[in-house]
Simulated scan of single mutants.
Amino acid sequence: MGKGRRVKFEKGSRTDKILKKQLRAFRKKFGRDPGPGDPVFFDPNAETPQPMPRATIDEAMRALAEQLPADIAYAYLKTDGLLPVQENLHLLSEEDLAEWNAAIDEYWRLHGEQEDGKPN
């Protein structure tokens, strides 16, 4: 599985709404509140709380990556789904941003030129 990241988010934010939706789905599926070891994003086909299968997560990540510029897609997949944007920069650690920047740099080292056609 992925590394797992701890992030802060604001009450009423998009993240807050997504997590509340997941909580409602968990309660509906399993008839109880999630415990400390239960996954937030669970396999809806499992009889007990199980993490979403990695293949399902990977498939969703690849589908999203296909819609991104090549360097961004590479870094997104390389960092296991990290996608820094203006709205979430304040939530990311220095380590996350360093990992992201290293992945972008690696993409350009491997591909030799920027998207505008200029050599690196």
Rank of each mutant, 00 (worst) to 15 (best):
M1G: 00
G2V: 09
K3T: 04
K3E: 05
G4M: 13
G4R: 12
G4F: 04
R6P: 00
V7E: 10
V7A: 07
F9S: 08
K11I: 12
K11G: 09
G12M: 06
G12R: 04
T15S: 07
K17C: 02
I18W: 13
K20H: 03
K21M: 08
F26C: 06
F26R: 02
F26H: 06
F26S: 03
K29M: 05
K29L: 10
G31Q: 02
D33Y: 05
P34T: 11
P36L: 08
P36M: 08
D38S: 08
D38G: 01
P39G: 14
V40D: 00
F41V: 14
F42C: 12
D43R: 09
D43S: 04
P44D: 12
N45M: 00
E47F: 08
T48N: 11
T48I: 13
Q50V: 07
P51C: 07
M52Y: 00
P53H: 01
R54G: 06
I57R: 06
D58M: 11
E59N: 09
E59P: 00
E59A: 15
A60P: 00
A60Y: 02
L64Y: 09
E66T: 10
Q67P: 06
L68E: 01
P69F: 00
P69H: 09
A70G: 07
A70S: 14
A73K: 01
Y76Q: 00
L77N: 00
L77M: 08
K78N: 05
G81T: 00
P84D: 06
P84V: 08
P84A: 07
V85E: 14
Q86T: 12
L89E: 15
L89H: 13
L89F: 15
L91C: 10
L92P: 12
S93I: 15
E95S: 05
D96M: 10
L97H: 09
A98N: 10
E99D: 14
E99I: 03
E99V: 02
A102S: 11
A102Y: 00
A103C: 14
A103Y: 12
I104N: 03
D105M: 10
D105G: 09
E106I: 04
W108A: 04
W108H: 15
H111R: 06
G112Y: 11
G112N: 13
Q114K: 06
D116E: 09
D116G: 10
K118R: 09
K118A: 05
N120G: 01
N120Q: 03
N120L: 13
